[in-house]
């Protein structure tokens, strides 16, 4: 009995040690972060693997904050983030912020009878709704920009993300940039201190937002564009938003493209810039770069080389920027000039 047990322990120990010492076959990369990027990454990696069998790329949807933090600590090689890194973080740990694609966000609502219509909404009106100043759908401010629409006198239920999220970041940035009182109040970030509104509801993840909005009549929610198919399936309405030029525009490929192009020339070489509330008559106001946060000093040379190869492929027009990938999540490809900037950043990886 004793021998058997001793042997079993020895075998386990040996297995552990052998496992520990065993070298990996090929190189492995870890991508973790934004849940908006996660579906795209999955499509990318599945395809990339077919041609590049010698590299293993693991993808995780853990949230942008985790992505940035894991890229800094070296746990992950690619940290996916909906938001560029803040100055305070960059000062502690300088990282590359490499845009991979352009995403947008729609404002969804569930007003019985009106979901087939596209309501017009503006930043200040949304700020009013989310701060409790605008309580009913037939409020004067909403009615003014929706002449001819019969709005119900029902109480609005504002739904916000309860978990930390890049969606909250870009939504609150739109409110901040368009509404001074919001920028002095709650401000923007991946988690913000929402004003206390008696009807407000928190939801977890984009699926939670869709579900909550669908289940709650008279609610309003902000949802990542990769969930457009889901919100359509749930028969939610989505709004035309007032842009910097004062026009109401729907999130379409052309309005997202217009917004991105208007800020292309302003994008600095480190590519940390907000695309929110972009100038231009046709620009949709809530769009953003989806970033890969990468440490330029990749200690491991083999990992560094594979990382550069994958990121270069992701930016190639015959690689990751193909419509078959981006259309599935309703993202847009990067403008040529941004691809160049991104490639220059990739070249810095060692």
């Amino acid at each position: 009995m004793r021998k058997t047990l001793a042997l079993a322990f020895a075998a386990l120990l040996a297995a552990g040690l052998l496992g520990g010492g065993k070298a990996l076959a090929g190189t492995s990369l870890l991508e973790t972060g934004s849940t908006l990027v996660y579906p795209l990454m999955n499509l990318w990696v599945a395809d990339y693997q077919r041609a590049h069998g010698d590299v293993q790329i693991t993808t995780q949807g853990t949230g942008s904050g985790t992505g940035i933090s894991q890229a800094i600590s070296g746990v992950a090689q690619i940290g996916a983030s909906d938001a560029y890194m803040a100055d305070a973080q960059m000062k502690n740990s300088p990282m590359l912020n490499i845009p991979l694609a352009i995403s947008a966000q729609q404002i969804n609502y569930n007003i019985p009878g009106l979901n087939a219509k596209h309501l017009n909404l503006s930043g200040p009106v949304l700020a009013g709704i989310y701060s409790g100043a605008i309580k009913f759908w037939d409020d004067k401010q909403i009615a003014e920009m929706n002449k001819g629409v019969k709005l119900p006198h029902n109480q609005i239920v504002p739904i916000h993300r309860a978990d930390g999220s890049g969606d909250t970041f870009i939504f609150s940035q739109y409110l901040s940039f368009s509404t001074p009182s919001w920028s002095h109040g709650p401000g923007y970030g991946t988690t913000i201190s929402w004003p206390s509104v008696s009807t407000a509801v928190g939801a977890t993840g984009n699926p939670g937002m869709v579900q909550t909005c669908q289940n709650t009549p008279n609610s309003i929610a902000y949802i990542g564009v990769s969930f457009l198919d889901e919100t359509n399936k749930a028969h939610l309405g989505y709004a035309a938003l007032k842009n910097r030029s004062g026009r109401f525009v729907l999130p379409t490929a052309s309005t997202i493209h217009a917004a991105a192009s208007s800020l292309t020339s302003k994008t600095p070489s480190d590519e940390r810039i907000s695309l929110i509330f972009a100038p231009g008559a046709e620009s949709y106001p809530i769009i953003n770069y989806e970033y890969a946060i990468v440490n330029p000093q990749q200690g491991d040379a083999a990992k560094g080389a594979e990382l550069k190869k994958f990121l270069t492929w992701a930016l190639a027009s015959n690689g990751g920027q193909q419509a078959k990938f981006l259309n599935a999540v309703h993202f847009l490809p990067l403008p040529e000039k941004i691809v160049k900037l991104s490639k220059a950043q990739i070249a810095k990886i060692k």
Partner: peptide
């Protein structure tokens, strides 16, 4: 109405907490 518990908030807020440079 929505609630939150300590255990749940540790999982759901860790992600945001990681963005805090301080």
């Amino acid at each position: 109405g929505p609630v939150n518990t300590i255990a749940a908030v540790i999982v759901s807020q860790l992600e945001s907490a990681l963005t805090d440079a301080s």
